[in-house]
Design a protein around this nucleic acid. Structure first.
Length: 972
DNA sequence: GCAAGGACGTA
DNA sequence: GTACGTCCTTGCA
């Protein structure tokens, strides 16, 4: 008998560091170790031939949790950092791989893999068999026997070394300086810092080996310790005899573990293709599939990927991700399967975290250097820390840092106050409150922690905190963002910490209003007493940490890894930098325009009062409706759902044309001017930052259903362009002297994406040939030649094209074109006859959203519609239209995100300098040195036009228009 | 002081 | 017909 025992857990850990990281192509699931593990298993079967071929085989894993050694010595393995995040999901997958190879996978609660291995090895050797242990763990070396019936084999590949290495008597002697039977005595003396086995302080391997070789074994040595000549060494041994004895117990492997499977049950089986290939295919290990296909003389093509492990099925069933998680977990449990470990893991993490009570009294204040050092050390030990910054305001480009809270484990959090003011502070400005560290000293201490990419910093809205920290000389490397995790998983349905905490932790948290009040007499956080601030701030860090646990665990089972890791997380620092740069706005231009608009609006207002025969508030739709449809008696008015007269611009335009009355047009013009004045020319200068003299918008990365960004305070994504007055406002956005603005925008990106997704050959050809797409549509629909096409025909086709993207309805199209509903219906019918593929696409999305509650972008972003099956027909129709639009708008949003993420590295690699300042959905604005514009533009275009590659090969070309000028209007 | 509704700026 | 954010008025607390 020859038994081959693979130390599975040790292999995974060593392979993690030795092998390059590898992820599953379609969803980014980390699988490097799984791949290495499969390679190792199949190489063993190949390489161990003839005399070395095993007759029996098993893979042994550690059972997570405590063992008898922790009772013996509570600190055993206490310094082990948690497994890296991308390793965790691979644990269950290696067990599954073992089973797929038809090999018994063994683990046992309360026992380490080493003990199980020792027990099997001991039994087989006792009965005269041979044992090969696949491991290089020094703790197993004690099992090697003088006749080498028990040997070890190291298989973790290392560069420049043979792929396999036998470990026998000679290797043990090199490592420990003794024979295998004395290894535990040596280890008892020298200890092991990795496993936290104490040993005798001050005695290393060399000394230990020397002592054991002199005295024979540990007990003899301890008994005769008095004889040792060196006084220091003698005293250490006498003082630490007990510690040495405990250490020996810790390192001694138990050879009497209750084995779950008898040795006979480990007899080798042929590799079963029916379990192996579905697993390998689900992992997307093409190379291994090919090689094993040849080796096993089986046809891999005959097997499908195992759905239990496969990446995001495009049409999985469920109405929201959380419900889907639970449903899947329940289904697997009911079937008695353990094949969905990641799902079960997520559910159990949620339960575990939710069960930890909140205790705001347990939070501590960091008032001194030593306290802060202690917390930083804890963060380093833990490998991660949740951080929340407290500031004097909500604008992270101007607010002051007031404090930092840290959480290293759920429930364990502290607050570092830095800028709190004392109680007497008034407008003359008192001093800093007592009991706070010096800001500069604190920053110096925290800086290495934040900059160290190996310590994970967890934020809730990284972009806000990183923006503040950056201004204090604290760059952040290595971060996660609970808010973005939530967005990648659930879209914008939870968008504040309170919402997330209430939903996932069933805990609302302290409302900020309780501390600073609201309205006129609102305080800043700097005025909050430190004790109150501690409860609030530390709770936020604690909540962030808890949410991170819950949400991060869902990423793999809910197939959101790729969206989070390739689109959300990398974009956040890009946006942070764009926000920090801001854009220059010309105050004078805006001031001049404000004056001009005010005059013209006043004139229109006077005219309106004249025409109405009375003074009224033109800004009040209510008063206006009563004048138009009451006093003046215009007909054709419609009511809004609250019973008021509708006075929208479309309706007023129509009224002006039909009644040839001047008032409605005056109102429309007045509204246009006051809108421009109020929202732009008056408001924008207020946003110019005193420190930078520029306007800094704030992008919301997690608020839009389709994956777009939104912009606020101020919104720089709705700067006017359509009217002449509007463009004057746009021209106030300028470059610095000596620089230029570049505007680069995708041409017709949504129609191109529609052509790709719906696979419409005629549209694809038109884009390929660079035709005018609206004219082409008109020509196809109305049989009008392209040459000399009337502009009105093209306008109608354009409206239809846009209508298609928005989920067309006859009602909407008739409104847009001002034609009867029936005529609009005919247009749509004609369109579908000409492009039946579009109708198929629309039907498919409608069916998909009803069946599964979401639709997807081409990159796999899911857009949820919880009320897709509403009883309300209007609501249902709305969801249908939105589900048609969402994959188109969302795919375009994903593409420009990819372009933004790649832009800065691409510029740097090309040795070009250009600052990306703004994003407006299909447009990027840069600021560049005047003489660099011509060289930068081609690179910008190249990055944008290829942004979908290689994840998605679009079947239509993307086209980007880019221009440089001194202001935004001329650059566009 | 705050929320809802209406209107309108953008893609 | 899709997706947003902001300003203003109105009505209620």
């Amino acid at each position: 008998m020859h038994l081959l025992l693979v130390d599975g857990s040790a292999y995974i850990f060593r392979a993690y560091h030795a092998l390059p990281p590898l992820t599953r192509k379609s969803d980014g699931l980390p699988v490097g170790c799984v791949s290495g593990f499969c390679n190792m298993l199949f190489k063993l079967t190949e390489d161990l031939k003839g005399d070395d071929a095993p007759t029996h085989m098993a893979v042994i894993f550690d059972f997570s949790g405590e063992t008898f050694r922790n009772e013996l010595y509570p600190d055993y393995k206490a310094h082990r950092p948690p497994a890296p995040e991308d390793l965790v999901p691979q644990f269950p997958l290696t067990r599954a791989a073992t089973k797929a190879f038809g090999i018994p996978s063994i683990e046992l609660e309360g026992w380490e893999a080493d003990d199980i291995i020792a027990t099997y090895a001991c039994r087989v050797a006792r009965d005269g068999g041979r044992v090969t242990i696949v491991s290089s763990d020094k703790d197993l070396m004690q099992l090697i026997d003088p006749e080498e019936r028990v040997r070890m084999l190291d298989t973790v590949p290392r560069p420049g070394q043979p792929p396999m290495r036998w470990i026998g008597l000679e290797e043990v002697r090199k490592k420990f300086g003794v024979t295998p039977d004395k290894v535990i005595d040596v280890q008892a003396l020298c200890g092991d810092s990795v496993d936290n086995v104490p040993g005798v302080p001050g005695i290393g391997v060399k000394t230990a080996a020397e002592l054991i070789n002199t005295y024979g074994d540990l007990e003899t040595l301890l008994a005769r310790a008095e004889e040792i000549k060196q006084p220091a060494r003698r005293q250490k041994l006498i003082d630490n005899a007990e510690l040495a004895r405990v250490s020996k117990q810790l390192v001694t492997l138990n050879q009497d573990v209750p084995l779950p499977l008898e040795v006979d049950a480990l007899a080798r089986q042929p590799i079963p293709p029916a379990s192996l290939f579905p697993f390998l295919k689900a992992m997307e290990f093409q190379t291994i599939v090919r090689r094993l296909g040849g080796l096993l003389d089986a046809d891999p093509d005959a097997f499908e990927a195992d759905p239990a492990y496969a990446a995001a099925p495009a049409n999985a069933v469920g109405f929201d991700n959380a419900a889907r998680t639970e449903a899947r977990a329940a289904r697997f449990e009911a079937q008695g399967r353990d094949e969905a470990p990641a799902v079960l893991h997520a559910a159990s993490v949620h339960q575990r975290i939710k069960a930890i009570p909140f205790n705001t009294d347990a939070y501590t204040v960091i008032a001194e250097r030593a306290d802060l050092e202690k917390w930083i050390e804890a963060a380093r030990t833990e490998g991660r820390v949740a951080i929340d910054t407290e500031t004097s305001g909500l604008d992270n480009q101007s607010a002051d840092l007031v404090g930092l809270s840290l959480c290293v484990r759920p429930g364990e959090a502290a607050y570092l106050p830095l800028g709190h003011l004392d109680g007497d502070s008034d407008m003359f400005g008192g001093g800093l409150a007592e009991g706070q560290m010096d800001m500069r000293q604190a920053i110096e201490l925290v800086q290495p922690l934040l900059a160290d990419p190996s310590i994970l910093k967890i934020f809730h809205n990284y972009k806000f905190d990183a923006g503040v920290l950056m201004r204090y000389g604290l760059p952040v490397n290595g971060y996660d963002d609970a808010l973005l995790l939530s967005y990648a998983l659930d879209g914008p349905q939870f968008n504040t910490m309170t919402e997330l905490s209430t939903h996932w932790l069933e805990h609302a948290g302290i409302p900020i209003k309780d501390l600073i009040g609201s309205g006129r007499n609102q305080l800043t956080f700097a005025q909050v007493p430190i004790a109150d601030a501690t409860r609030y701030a530390a709770e936020d860090a604690d909540t962030t940490m808890r949410l991170w646990h819950v949400l991060k665990a869902r990423l793999v089972p809910e197939n959101a890894v790729t969206i989070y890791e390739t689109l959300e997380r990398p974009l956040a620092p890009v946006l942070a930098r764009m926000e920090a740069r801001g854009i220059s706005v010309d105050r004078q231009i805006l001031a001049r325009l404000s004056g001009e608009f005010a005059q013209r609006a006043a004139a229109l207002e006077a005219e309106a009062h004249e025409l109405a025969g009375e003074r009224f508030n033109l800004g009040s739709p209510k008063q206006l409706g009563e004048i138009l449809f009451g006093k003046l008696g215009f007909s054709g008015g419609t009511k809004t759902k609250s019973g008021q007269w509708s006075t929208g611009a479309g309706l007023l335009e129509e009224l002006a044309a039909r009644e040839s009355a001047p008032l409605p047009k005056v109102i429309v013009d007045w509204r246009g001017l006051t809108k421009l004045k109020g929202t732009y020319t008056d408001a924008l200068p207020e946003y110019i930052n005193a420190r930078t003299n520029r306007v800094h918008t704030s992008y919301n990365q997690s608020s839009v259903l389709t994956g777009r960004l939104s912009s606020n305070e101020p919104n720089l994504q709705n700067i006017p362009i359509r009217s002449e007055d509007g463009r004057k406002i746009r021209s106030a956005f300028v470059s610095e002297p000596g620089k230029l603005l570049i505007s680069a925008d995708y041409s017709q990106i949504e129609l191109r994406i529609l052509a790709h997704i719906a696979d419409i050959q005629a549209l694809k050809d038109a884009f390929e040939e660079g035709l005018d797409i609206h004219a082409m549509t008109a020509s196809e629909m109305f049989h009008v030649p392209l040459e000399g096409m009337p502009s009105d025909v093209r306008r109608r086709a354009k409206a239809i094209n846009f209508g298609i993207i928005y989920g067309i309805s006859a009602f909407g199209l008739s409104n847009q074109l001002g034609i009867p509903r029936s005529e609009a219906g005919d247009y749509i019918k004609t369109y579908f006859e000409r492009f039946p593929g579009i109708r198929d696409y629309m039907e498919h999305q409608k069916q998909a959203v009803k069946a599964q509650g979401f639709v997807q972008t081409v990159f796999g972003r899911r857009i949820q519609f919880p009320n897709a099956n509403s009883r309300n027909p209007a609501e249902r129709s709305f969801v249908e239209r939105a589900s048609i639009n969402a994959p188109i708008q969302g795919s375009a949003a994903d593409i420009i995100r990819r372009a933004m993420i790649r832009m800065e590295p691409a510029l740097e690699q090309a040795g070009l300098a250009a600052d990306m300042l703004l994003q407006v959905h299909d447009e990027l604005i840069f600021e560049v040195a005047e003489d660099a514009a011509d060289t930068v533009i081609p690179l910008i275009r190249q990055v944008m036009e290829n942004a979908a590659d290689p994840a998605v090969r679009l079947s239509v070309p993307l086209q980007v228009e880019a221009h440089a000028a001194r202001n935004w209007d001329e650059a566009h």
